[in-house]
Design a protein around this nucleic acid. Structure first.
Length: 561
RNA sequence: UGGGGCGUAGCCAAGUGGUAAGGCAACGGGUUUUGAUCCCGUGAUUCGCAGGUUCGAUCCCUGCCGCCCCAGCCA
């Protein structure tokens, strides 16, 4: 049995895959063709990742194909920069559209011809009502609309007017082309929807060729039909448009009959997932750009260090349904950690240094100790980490007056330095302000590698970096972009911004091998979390992003007191 | 008060007539040279509510309640 046959047979995972499997089984569809149709008016975010994984995933599973189509029908909002970022993000997520890169604007001539077809059939008319009048005539949610006084123009008159719209004779907003459907429909999309508007604006791809542009409703379904899309998957807010989508397919001589299915969009706690609001964060300078590691954009998550496989896993686990949902950020974090735990190599780094001198270690001595790169993957091998008399340890790993259950270093207490030796704190040096600035310790040479031949145990193991070998680094720590699970609604959402979403640490020290860390390949700093090289890194200045902390049960113990 | 969609544990989500999968979170416990990972254990007498059909209903019927979307010449 082929993979495709298996996919058809398998109890599919969601209602859309069920529909596709049965369409394939019944022979209603021979090859499944889907498409991911973003508008190039902003960067893609994790909500789009859900749609990308669905569309490309379904095509893969059922042996079909998925197109990338840019829905570029509104030149007032769209830009080339966004087109490039969309392609990059889809590719990075691991999907390939092959030869099938399309633009709605590729179809402008055909769409225009179809619009004329509707006009000739008496199914569309040119209206010269003002935007305000059109709104008034449309009625409300509970009251039907009224027919426009221009609704009954002859086909000849409409054709003439429509052609003059195209030729540029009229100013913006003076005329529109409307489908003639039903002004009293309970579905407002059917109250003679506008299908062409005049926009004297240059288009990123067609330049100055057009001054009239089709609306989403008129361009989308027909583009689907032209590309022979079989299953047009979109989010729930388009469900109301489906009758209109079907109306055009029925009344136009289109080459295929795609069907639209809707699923619910993804929502995540502690962030916002609408382009309108994301663009405000960028343009208002509340973040450092679309790819700021705090952003839920694909580019932000990538820069943060989150792996594409983690995003795919997350999206798959969350599932596809029609119910409204708000997924906890913790779920994404779990997926991110899960894959990094298995793949990320381990290193040591000290973020908030406290100096330690090993009194009984040779003055100018040093040595290299073997450390395991990934305890979950033996094939990752080992590396050598330099050790010497002067070390940095984490400030948090020492307490002068430790509470119960604190297993780390304290005066007179012995702990293990990971992969190195047992050390005992013998003295604490403070500055004039009483601040601890250095620890004097002794080490037990018998414990090299971290085990005592006499079988004695220590309660704690802490990480360290050798002072003379340390590489300085800037480390950026991130917290949620918004303080609360659900940011305030509407334009007030900026008030919910977390003031502490970014912390920059500029006195960090990492073991020498960290300079080889490649961007896009996060490493785990033992006991601290996962970190990825930031593109701000320069030859003399290493910049790291904390992708994700490790789970921290000590934090819970500490919180309880 | 029009049209469309949805309501299964804190969150996500299977199941759709035979007596409530799974994941995340949380909480216990074990292993551990990362207080990580890993492993084990703990949750719905109940599926928005109320009636009805049935030997039997989360699943079928009726009514009600709640939430989301739609009145851009945005997508």
């Amino acid at each position: 049995m082929s993979n495709t046959e298996a996919a058809i047979d398998e109890g599919a995972r969601d209602f859309i895959r069920n529909i596709i499997a049965s369409d394939l089984k019944d022979g209603r569809v021979e090859t499944v063709v889907t498409r991911f149709p973003p508008e190039p008016n902003g960067y893609l975010h994790i909500g789009h990742a859900k749609s990308i994984c669905l569309n490309f995933g379904v095509a893969q599973e059922f042996g079909g194909r998925c197109h990338l189509r840019l829905d570029d029908t509104n030149p007032t909002k769209e830009e080339q920069e966004y087109i490039e970022s969309i392609k990059e993000d889809v590719r990075w997520l691991g999907f390939d559209w092959g030869e099938h890169l399309y633009f709605a604007s590729d179809n402008f001539e055909q769409l225009y011809a179809w619009a004329e077809h509707l006009v000739k059939e008496g199914k569309a008319y040119v209206d010269d009502l003002s935007p305000e009048e059109i709104r008034e005539y449309r009625g409300t949610l509970t009251e039907p609309g009224r027919n426009s006084p221009h609704r009954d123009r002859t086909a000849e008159e409409n054709l003439d007017l429509f052609r003059r719209m195209r030729s540029g004779e009229f100013p913006d907003a003076s005329h529109v082309l409307r489908a003639k459907i039903d002004m009293s429909s309970g579905n407002i999309n059917l109250r003679d929807p506008i299908i062409y508007r005049i926009l004297h604006v240059a288009h990123p791809r067609t330049g100055g060729d057009w001054c009239i542009y089709p609306t989403y409703d008129f361009a989308h379904g027909q583009s689907d039909a032209i590309e022979h899309i079989t299953h047009s998957l979109c989010t729930l807010e388009f469900a109301d448009h489906r009758p209109l989508y079907d109306w055009f397919i029925e009344h136009l001589p289109v080459p295929s009959r795609p069907r639209q299915y809707e699923f619910s969009r993804l929502n995540l706690t502690h962030t916002v997932l609408s382009k309108r609001r994301l663009i405000q964060l960028v343009e208002g300078g509340h973040v450092r750009g679309w790819d700021d590691p705090r952003m839920p954009t694909i580019s932000g998550l990538r820069r943060r260090g989150i792996l594409a496989s983690a995003i795919r896993d997350f999206v798959q686990r969350v599932g596809i349904t029609k119910s409204d949902n708000v997924v906890e950020l913790a779920y994404l974090e779990h997926c991110a950690r899960d894959i990094m735990n298995k793949t990320a190599e381990r290193r040591m780094a000290v973020l908030n240094p406290l100096k330690v001198t090993i009194e009984n270690y040779p003055e100018d001595g040093s040595e290299e100790l073997e450390a395991i790169n990934n305890p979950n993957d033996e094939s990752a091998g080992t590396r050598l980490v330099p050790f010497s008399r002067k070390l940095y340890i984490e400030r948090e790993d020492f307490m002068e007056e430790p509470p119960r259950k604190f297993f780390r270093l304290a005066p007179g207490r012995e702990v293990r330095l990971r992969y190195a030796y047992f050390i005992t704190c013998t003295d604490v040096i403070k500055d004039d302000a009483g601040e601890v600035i250095e620890l004097i310790c002794t080490y037990d040479p018998e414990t090299r590698g971290g085990n005592a031949p006499d079988g004695r145990k220590v309660k704690g193991t802490i990480h360290w970096v050798s002072v003379p070998h340390a590489i300085p680094a800037e480390v950026r720590l991130y917290d949620t972009l918004f303080t609360d699970e659900e940011p305030p609604l509407g334009d007030g959402f900026l008030k919910g911004l977390n003031e502490n979403s970014l912390t920059v640490l500029d006195n960090c020290h990492v073991e020498p091998s960290v300079v080889d860390v490649k961007s896009g390949e996060p490493v785990q700093f033992e006991r601290l979390g996962y970190f990825a090289r930031d593109p701000d890194t320069t030859p003399g200045h290493l910049v790291l992003n904390r992708t994700m902390t490790l789970r921290d049960s000590w934090a819970k113990v500490k919180a309880k007191g």
